[in-house]
Amino acid sequence: TLFEALYDYEARTEDDLSFHKGEKFQILNSSEGDWWEARSLTTGETGYIPSIYLAPV
């Protein structure tokens, strides 16, 4: 399942991933609670993103 960003997000740590509204992600690991490891389909970068900023596509 792909997810789309509902809002912009600016990374706060080196493990976080910055993204823009409308960016799409492949989720790599969603077992860490509210922060999911994801790969951006726009940039190819991976990192942790807040799941509350996402909606399934």
Rank of each mutant, 00 (worst) to 15 (best):
L2F: 10
T46D: 03
P56T: 05
F3Y: 15
Y7N: 08
E32R: 15
G47F: 06
E45M: 15
L6R: 06
L6N: 04
T13F: 15
I49G: 01
V57F: 07
I52S: 15
S18P: 06
Y7H: 10
I52Q: 14
L28I: 11
G33A: 13
A5W: 01
E45H: 12
L6Q: 07
R12Q: 15
T1W: 12
F19H: 01
D16R: 15
P50S: 09
L41H: 04
S31F: 10
G22W: 05
V57W: 08
R39N: 04
A55V: 14
Y53C: 10
L54D: 01
S18Y: 03
K24R: 14
D8N: 08
E32G: 14
T43E: 01
W36I: 06
A55M: 10
D15S: 14
R12V: 13
T13D: 12
G33R: 11
N29D: 13
Y9F: 09
T46G: 03
K21Q: 08
G22F: 05
F19C: 07
K24F: 12
A55Y: 09
D34S: 09
Y48Q: 08
A5G: 03
P56R: 06
Q26S: 07
I49C: 05
T43A: 02
A5M: 01
S40Q: 05
G33Q: 12
Q26I: 15
E32T: 13
T46M: 09
L41N: 04
I27F: 03
E37D: 04
I52W: 15
A38F: 02
I52H: 14
Q26N: 07
F25Y: 02
G22H: 05
E23L: 01
P50N: 15
S31C: 11
R39T: 11
D34A: 10
P56Q: 08
G33V: 12
S31P: 10
Y48I: 09
T13L: 11
N29Q: 07
R12A: 12
A11M: 04
E45R: 14
I49K: 00
S40A: 06
N29V: 08
S31Q: 11
T13Q: 11
F3D: 00
W36V: 07
I52N: 15
E10D: 10
P50V: 04
S18I: 02
N29C: 09
L6G: 02
D8F: 04
D34P: 10
S51E: 05
F25N: 00
L17A: 02
A5D: 00
D15M: 14
D34I: 12
T43N: 06
I52C: 15
L41K: 04
L54W: 01
S18V: 03
I49E: 00
K24V: 15
H20Q: 11
P56L: 08
L2M: 10
G33T: 13
E37A: 08
L54C: 04
R12Y: 08
T1K: 12
P56V: 09
I49H: 00
E10M: 11
Y48H: 08
E45K: 15
L41M: 12
A5N: 00
F25K: 00
Y9I: 03
